[in-house]
Each structure stands twice: as structure tokens, then as C-alpha cells.
């Protein structure tokens, strides 16, 4: 009896379901696919080098912006939450770059000490 009344309750809910709003979601999907396609075009039509790597990293950050902003909904959260996530991430990227630059220099000086 109890389960029966539960079911009718569910059907009452089903009647009021609003229509899906998926326009932005699919738009974001096509942007992501397009950026990936552009990355492939660069991978095959351009010789490897610093410029190509810079383009790759730039496009990757674009993709990251759309995934975090739209799919993870961060763009529409409060300013406080956006900064709470963004500031540590920016510092992390700084740390990554610093470790790479300094680490490369340090590695080179250690390994080439006797040359």
C-alpha cells in the first residue's frame, strides 16, 4: 500500500518536469571539439618548435576555461568561490614554471659540472 502511494507521488512529479535547457551545453561541446581539431591541424601542418608549443598550451588553456567555466559551472558561482579555486591554481602554474626553469638550470649545472 505504501509503495503504491509512493508511485503515484512519483507520477505526479513526472507531470511537472520542465523542458531541458541544453543549448549552452552542446555549444560548449562543439567549441571543445573544434579546438581539439585545430590542435590536430597544428600538429600535422606545422613543424615542432617553441611557437607551436605555445599555440598548444594556449589552446589547452582555452579548453580548460570552457570545461571549468561551463561544465563545472564555476563561471556562474559566487566571486568568492571563483577566486578560492583560481588563485591557488595560478600559484600552482607559477610553481610549475619556476620548478621547470630552475630545475633545468640546476640539472644542467650538476650534470655538466666537470665539462
Amino acid at each position: 500500500m505504501a509503495s503504491h502511494s509512493h508511485h503515484t507521488d512519483e507520477f505526479a512529479h513526472t507531470g511537472e518536469i520542465p523542458k531541458a535547457q541544453t543549448k549552452v551545453i552542446w555549444k560548449t561541446f562543439f567549441i571543445l571539439v573544434a579546438i581539439t581539431a585545430v590542435e590536430f591541424a597544428f600538429a600535422f601542418m606545422m613543424d615542432a618548435g617553441t611557437l607551436r608549443n605555445a599555440i598548444f598550451i594556449g589552446l589547452t588553456l582555452f579548453k580548460a576555461f570552457y570545461i571549468v567555466g561551463e561544465f563545472m559551472h564555476l563561471k556562474h558561482e559566487t566571486k568568492g568561490l571563483i577566486w578560492a579555486v583560481l588563485v591557488p591554481t595560478v600559484l600552482l602554474v607559477w610553481l610549475l614554471v619556476a620548478l621547470l626553469v630552475e630545475g633545468t638550470f640546476y640539472g644542467e649545472s650538476v650534470f655538466n659540472y666537470f665539462n
Binding site: E10, H13, T14, I17, P18, A20, Q21, T22, I25, W26, T28, F29, L32, V33, T36, I67, E70, F71
Partner: peptide, 24 residues
């Protein structure tokens, strides 16, 4: 990569359906 991006889209669609309480 395409498969994973597509799975991300279907995930957002599930979240969106959750907002509308659309169990199916």
C-alpha cells in the same frame, strides 16, 4: 579524447536533468 569530451557532455546533461528532478 573525443570519447572523454562526449562523456563530459552526457554528464552535464545528467546534472541538468537532476535540476529538473527528471529521474528518467
Amino acid at each position: 579524447t573525443m570519447i572523454l569530451i562526449l562523456s563530459s557532455v552526457t554528464m552535464v546533461l545528467a546534472v541538468e536533468a537532476g535540476h529538473r528532478m527528471d529521474k528518467n
